[in-house]
Amino acid sequence: MKKLIFLVLFVTAYVVSFAQFPPQGKVEYKTMPSKILNEDREYSIYLPKSYATNTDKTYPVLYLLHGGGGSHKDWPGRGHVGDVANQLMDSNEACEMIIVCPEAGKTFMNYFNHPEWRFQDYFFEEMIPFIESNYRVIGDKKHRAIAGLSMGGGGTVVYATSHPELFCAAYEMSGYLYRQDLPFLDKNDPVQERLQTLVEEHNCVKIIQNADAQTVEALKTVNWFIDCGDDDFTFDPNMEFIAALRAKQIPYQLRVRDGGHTWEYWHSALYIALPFVSNCFRGI
């Protein structure tokens, strides 16, 4: 009898605990092989709460890029993307989606191609196909979006402008869009100097300014969102980027909020970014 009573109490406690803490989406840290980069590459992936239980369901995907000097763990750790996603999905402010955070650091920290580091080729030729082959992703433009902060914001723009046929939405946060000779950057550091050169070779403002009519029409199929703090050192380049979009009559959304180049700002941006890309996925 005592064992039965104990079992009943245990089951009751478990049910109550489960009711108080329902299943949530989770972040996993993984690796994938890369022939292009000749090494295994790390990535973080957020899987929504129904992923494990509803094995017939497929999901849209957001590729979320970290900033310079960061890693694939930044958005889950410092940006709390898992917690934000769970909150917004539970309240139906965002649809269930898979969120992938690539690792672009450690070796060269560069989202762009370089003779020794073809990261852009890796992203499009290996990572996207790998994710879509190994996870239940809806692999089309209408259900694929990209976003990123700072250097990853620049990467977001470059990736979406180079392949507008792949993304329905691009959300750029505090984007580092072209070379800025900032006081905290060391011109005598060859690694930093090479990165700055690559950034300038992919000057996001010039990409829009120099776009021909056919390219402009393709860029109009992407839902653009620019989010930058009024105290951010990237504010002026971002306003130039807006001016370039306006000159080409490319639709966009813009938010200028109080804040600088900080994780407080980017964490809060997720509460705008995830509903925005969700509406794009939903066709709203």
Rank of each mutant, 00 (worst) to 15 (best):
L4M: 12
I5G: 06
L9N: 08
V11C: 12
A13D: 01
V16F: 14
S17H: 13
Q20S: 04
P23D: 15
P23F: 13
V27S: 12
E28M: 08
K30Q: 13
T31F: 03
P33K: 06
S34L: 12
N38R: 08
E39H: 09
D40P: 05
I45C: 05
L47I: 09
K49D: 14
Y51Q: 01
T55Y: 08
Y59P: 05
V61L: 08
G67I: 00
S71G: 13
H72L: 02
H72N: 15
K73R: 12
W75Q: 09
G77Y: 08
H80A: 03
V81F: 04
V81K: 06
D83M: 02
D83E: 14
V84L: 09
N86Y: 02
M89D: 09
C95P: 11
E96T: 14
I98T: 00
I99W: 05
I99M: 00
T107N: 13
F108E: 10
M109K: 10
N110V: 04
N113E: 08
H114Y: 09
H114F: 05
P115A: 07
E116P: 01
W117Q: 00
F119R: 02
Y122I: 00
F124N: 03
E126Y: 00
E126F: 02
I128N: 09
P129H: 03
I131Y: 04
E132S: 14
N134L: 01
N134Y: 07
R136V: 03
R136L: 01
D140E: 12
K142W: 03
I146V: 15
A147N: 03
G148K: 03
L149K: 00
G152N: 08
G154M: 06
V158N: 05
H163C: 01
P164W: 04
E165C: 00
C168A: 11
E172S: 10
S174P: 12
S174N: 10
Y176E: 05
R179N: 11
D181T: 15
P183I: 03
L185C: 02
N188C: 09
V191Q: 15
Q196V: 05
T197M: 10
L198C: 09
L198Y: 07
E200S: 14
H202V: 03
H202F: 10
N203V: 00
C204R: 01
I208W: 11
D212L: 05
T215H: 11
V216M: 12
T221G: 01
W224Y: 02
D227Q: 10
D232M: 00
T234D: 03
T234Y: 14
F235H: 08
N238T: 01
E240L: 06
F241V: 00
I242R: 07
A247K: 15
K248H: 12
Q249A: 12
Q249C: 01
I250A: 11
I250P: 06
L254T: 10
G259V: 02
H267D: 01
S268L: 14
L270D: 06
L270W: 06
I272T: 15
L274W: 10
P275C: 03
F281N: 04
R282W: 07
I284Y: 10
